[in-house]
Simulated scan of single mutants.
Amino acid sequence: MSIVNLIEAQKGEMDDLMFWIDQLRVSSDEMDVIVRKITAESQQIKMDGLPDVS
């Protein structure tokens, strides 16, 4: 179950809701780091060209 589904299931329970919102923030930050790394590596490959694999 995704964090968003868990948040939606927590209607009326603010403490749990705040916990899941914090977890969503942590997960989003982690995903952002991963995407930035992939983007930077892709840009580097694009600038350097693909290695000759023959």
Rank of each mutant, 00 (worst) to 15 (best):
K46W: 07
Q44M: 12
L6M: 12
L24D: 04
S27C: 05
M47N: 04
R36T: 10
D29E: 14
S2K: 11
I7D: 00
W20K: 10
R36P: 01
E8L: 15
K37S: 13
L17N: 01
L6N: 10
E8Y: 04
P51T: 01
L6C: 13
G12V: 06
E30S: 13
S2N: 14
S42Q: 14
S54I: 04
D29T: 07
A40N: 07
G49M: 01
A40P: 00
P51E: 04
I7K: 02
Q44E: 13
Q44C: 01
S27G: 06
L24R: 03
M14E: 11
V33P: 00
R25W: 05
Q10R: 04
F19L: 09
D22R: 15
G12L: 07
M31H: 08
M1Y: 11
M31V: 09
E13V: 04
Q23V: 09
D16S: 11
V33T: 14
L24V: 01
D15F: 05
V35K: 06
I3V: 13
K11Q: 14
Q10C: 09
M47D: 09
K37T: 13
D16C: 05
D48E: 07
M47Y: 02
A9V: 05
E13Q: 11
L17V: 10
L17W: 03
I34A: 12
D22E: 14
I7A: 05
Q43D: 03
N5R: 15
